[in-house]
């Protein structure tokens, strides 16, 4: 997986926090219009990898290409312009609690694209409808919503600007299985409708099987396996096998005990 069809390419990306090496030479390619899911245990560097692509964390070394353009060492202005391509659903929603729901959804349109309030509000209500929330929710504040509804609002915000690339950071964490499935369906639908490239990080295997075209497993800051979702069950990789079956016994536990 590489070449002109690649939307995101990470090559030998390293990131350390003090003496702790979180990314130890990550290599990842996400093809245009496909859905890549990164799996891996807690603290293996999934979120850091994702934030390095967005520039929220600066990688120490390596190369990160978006649409073939090197993003390492980009100026703030260039990066700000590039951000228009991205939408992101944060793990905790990250909704602005001082703003009503509609303004949260329309935020990127108003402040990022300079759209008028009325037009942005109409689009926000449409986007809320597309994630199954009625217009009566638009004037509520995030604190008045349940966890599932907050995720939907966050999803609506992520797709409001119709981005080319959407990141999902553990989209089903903290949700009941039914609501998790609803969110998974919405993600698949939204990504398909937009024709966007999606990059998701999750532990939730049901989510992986529903969302992913390709899966990559991260372990100790490196990608140790990448393949199609249909190959997940016969990957031949003992780390992947252990992780997807949620076994306590296996190379991951052994190593963790030794560390």
């Amino acid at each position: 997986m590489s070449g002109d069809t690649a939307k995101i390419v990470m090559k030998d990306v390293h990131k350390s926090f003090g003496s702790k090496h979180v990314l130890n030479g990550i290599d990842l390619t996400v093809e245009r219009g496909t859905s890549m899911v990164i799996i891996g245990g807690s603290g293996t560097g999934k979120s850091v990898a994702l934030k390095c692509i967005l520039g929220l964390i600066h990688a120490d070394s390596g190369s990160i290409l978006v649409d073939g353009v090197e993003t390492m060492g980009m100026s703030d202005r260039e990066r700000n312009a590039m951000m228009g391509k991205f939408g992101m659903l944060f793990q905790g929603g990250a909704l602005f609690d001082s703003l009503p729901v509609w303004h949260n959804v329309a935020f990127g349109l108003i402040h990022g694209q300079g759209m008028s309030l009325k037009q942005a509000r109409d689009i926000a209500v449409d986007k809320l409808k597309s994630v199954g929330l009625g217009s009566q929710v638009a004037n509520l504040f995030p604190a008045e919503l349940s966890g599932g509804m907050q995720k939907r609002v966050s999803l609506a915000r992520a797709i409001a600007t119709e981005p080319e690339i959407i990141f999902f950071d553990e989209p089903t964490t903290g949700l009941d299985p039914i609501m998790a499935d609803v969110i998974n369906n919405l993600i698949v639908e939204c990504v398909k409708n937009l024709g966007a490239t999606a990059l998701t990080i999750t532990h939730d295997m049901a989510s992986v099987r529903k969302i992913a075209d390709h899966v990559s497993m991260i372990y100790e800051g490196k990608m140790i396996w990448t393949g199609g979702v249909d190959r997940l069950d016969d990957s031949g990789n003992p780390y992947v096998d252990q992780f997807i079956h949620g076994r306590a016994q296996g190379p991951i536990t052994k190593h963790a005990h030794m560390a």
């Binding site: 703030d76 905790g92 909704l95 602005f96 402040h111």
Partner: peptide, 18 residues
């Protein structure tokens, strides 16, 4: 802590300015 500042950045808004 709740990643709202990161969210501002992803929405093309400079958190320092905002």
């Amino acid at each position: 802590v709740t990643e709202q500042i990161d969210a501002l950045t992803t929405l093309s808004v400079n958190p320092i300015k905002y």
